[in-house]
Simulated scan of single mutants.
Amino acid sequence: MPAMGVDRVMGTPPGYRLGWLARLLTFSAHDPCARFLDGSLWWAARTPEGPGTLWLRPAPGQLLASGHGPGGSWLVERADAVAGLRDRLDGFAALAASRPTLARLAGAVGTPRLPATGLVFQRLLRSVLEQKVTGTEAYRAYAATVRHFGEPAPGPVPLLLPPDPDAVASAGYWVFHRFGVEQRRADTLARAAAAAARLERCGDSSETTARLTAVDGIGRWTAAEVVRVVHGDADAVSVGDYHVKNTVSWALAGEPRGTDERMLELLAPFAGHRGRVCLLLEAAGLHAPRYGPRATIRSFHTY
């Protein structure tokens, strides 16, 4: 990797792990819009000032940031938020210590810090494509969509920019059908793209959630997946997820199966950090016992 100048130097707290951010800002190791390489994160985005790429890399007690492209300065200015350094962990250590399972996991894998990217549509694209399908299906659709609409991102790493919302909104359903996206998700994505400008103007998690769920096809699950990353909402819980309710019930109550209602009941003592608890369980690889066959991967794009 060529040597580059540093646009910003940020102090990091003890135990800070840039890899946590990579989990939340990349969609697999092959995300066309982001790469976690040699311990550093490259992340391409469409900013209010234009296309940009942010390069974050750790140094002892510090995090270094560089920006590329017209939007590079915007990304560098927001780099501490993107890197989770504005995230408030107040009270979480004491809450985790109250449950031996959480205390053990936090000690083993660290405490997740959440980014606050401030960019809604980039995350919304992924979240809509993840609705009601397997992770493999979602990634294939996401990667194909990005490559179809993609434009090269600024900087030395070969990344693509997320699709322009206007281009997505004007695309016909058949464009997404060949990526394995059925009409329900394709239509939801088109409506979300058409509303993108309004969504980007939302000032906080509550406003974003309200406007998102007003879009036909977007419910509580999708909204939580978005605001957790866009606004760093550590309390956002993915109600309606197929696995999370069981994972929480198993981890906190030893119950192999749960409901959304039971999940929220168990998470109530962790108010303010409920989503963080779910992320900790996920990052630690904890899951409820599995019964029956796994969900099958559908293939209908050639029909």
Rank of each mutant, 00 (worst) to 15 (best):
Pro32Cys: 05
Ala153Pro: 06
Phe300Arg: 12
Ala283His: 14
Asp187Arg: 15
Pro115Trp: 08
Leu102Thr: 07
Gly15Thr: 03
Glu261Lys: 14
Gln131Glu: 05
Leu21Trp: 09
Pro51Val: 02
Val168Leu: 15
Pro100Gly: 09
Gly52Val: 02
Ser170Thr: 08
Phe179Thr: 03
Val230Glu: 06
Val168Asp: 01
Glu182Met: 13
Leu85Gly: 01
Val229Pro: 04
Glu137Ala: 12
Leu41Ile: 03
Arg198Cys: 06
Leu280Gly: 11
Val237Asp: 12
Glu49Trp: 02
Arg99Phe: 06
Val215Ser: 01
Trp74Thr: 07
Pro112Trp: 00
Ala94Thr: 13
Trp250His: 13
Arg8Phe: 06
Gln183Ser: 15
Thr26Lys: 11
Ala236Arg: 11
His30Trp: 10
Val157Lys: 02
Gly39Trp: 03
Arg276Pro: 11
Thr47Tyr: 06
Val9Trp: 05
Leu279Gln: 14
Arg99Glu: 14
Thr12Pro: 01
Pro256His: 06
Arg201Asn: 04
Val181Lys: 05
Ala186Val: 10
Arg178Leu: 02
Ala192Leu: 08
Val157Leu: 06
Thr302Gln: 14
Trp43Phe: 12
Leu114Gln: 04
Tyr139Lys: 12
Trp20Asp: 15
Pro165Gly: 02
Ala96His: 09
Pro32Asp: 04
Thr12His: 04
Val6Tyr: 09
Ala79Asn: 00
Gln183Ile: 10
Glu255Cys: 14
Pro154Ala: 08
Cys33Ala: 14
Gly15Arg: 06
Ala96Tyr: 11
Ala96Thr: 05
Val277Glu: 09
Ala224Thr: 10
Phe270Gln: 08
Gly272Ile: 06
Gly172Leu: 11
Val175Asn: 01
Leu89Pro: 05
His177Val: 02
Ala143Tyr: 08
Arg228His: 11
Pro163Met: 01
Val120Ile: 05
Pro60Ile: 05
Thr134Gly: 01
Asp166Glu: 15
Gly272Leu: 00
Pro156Thr: 04
Leu64Trp: 11
Leu89Ala: 14
Glu282Tyr: 12
Leu129Tyr: 10
Ala268Lys: 13
Ser238Asp: 10
Arg290Thr: 14
Gly155Met: 00
Arg88Trp: 07
Leu105Asn: 09
Val109Asp: 01
Val229Thr: 14
Ser299Cys: 11
Phe92Val: 15
Thr136Asn: 04
Ile218Gln: 08
Pro154Ser: 08
Glu49Val: 01
Ala143Glu: 12
Leu89Asn: 07
Pro156Ala: 10
Ala29Asp: 15
Val248Tyr: 04
Thr136Pro: 00
Ala210Glu: 12
Ser205Trp: 01
Val6Arg: 11
Leu161Phe: 08
Phe149Gly: 03
Cys202Leu: 04
